[in-house]
């Protein structure tokens, strides 16, 4: 099962809508081993194509270095299908190289509804999983506490 904040789901969908009819792609990073997607990182689709996506090679290196430095991993790898359903294609399956990641697919083929589904792809085998969207918690504002002037 994928548990993901509403705010991040909204960000993924907005990215997919923005790049439509080209495919959009990106990752959501989280602390290594946590299985918690927390940091939304939209990536450029270097293929700029309605039927293909690929992270730019320099961006990919920068991304993985940054994840490594922060002790994070790509908990979610997402991309959109802009004319077909939110199901991994043969190409998606053969190129899936992160067995620990949740592969999230978004379909933007319908203008008014966006389908978002999640899969595990391990050694060419696809397993769909439940997506549990967590309501976004309001950030606790502690600024007054920190910045309160001395009495």
């Amino acid at each position: 099962m994928l548990q993901i904040d509403q705010e991040i789901v909204d960000a993924i969908v907005a990215h997919a809508r923005r790049d439509h009819p080209d495919e959009a792609c990106g990752v959501v990073a989280g602390p290594a081993g946590s299985d918690r997607p927390q940091r939304f990182i939209p990536m450029l689709n270097a293929a700029r194509s309605p039927t293909f996506y690929e992270f730019d090679s320099q961006d990919l290196l920068r991304l993985y270095r940054e994840l490594d430095d922060r002790d994070e991993e790509p908990v979610v790898i997402y991309h959109s299908h802009t004319a077909t359903e939110a199901y991994p294609s043969r190409t998606d399956i053969s190129l899936a190289m992160e067995p620990g990641a949740h592969y999230v697919l978004v379909s933007t083929r319908e203008p008014d509804t966006t389908d978002l589904r999640s899969y595990r792809i391990v050694d060419g085998a696809v397993t769909e999983e439940e997506v549990r969207v967590l309501p976004t918690l309001q950030a606790v504002d502690t600024s007054t506490e920190r910045e309160a002037p001395q009495r």
Binding site: F52, Y53, F55, T84, S89, T91, M97
Partner: peptide
């Protein structure tokens, strides 16, 4: 030297360039 698999894929019927 760093080895990284591409993060890539495509819609049904798409062929990788």
């Amino acid at each position: 030297v760093t080895v990284l698999p591409a993060v890539a894929g495509g819609a049904p019927g798409a062929t990788a360039r």
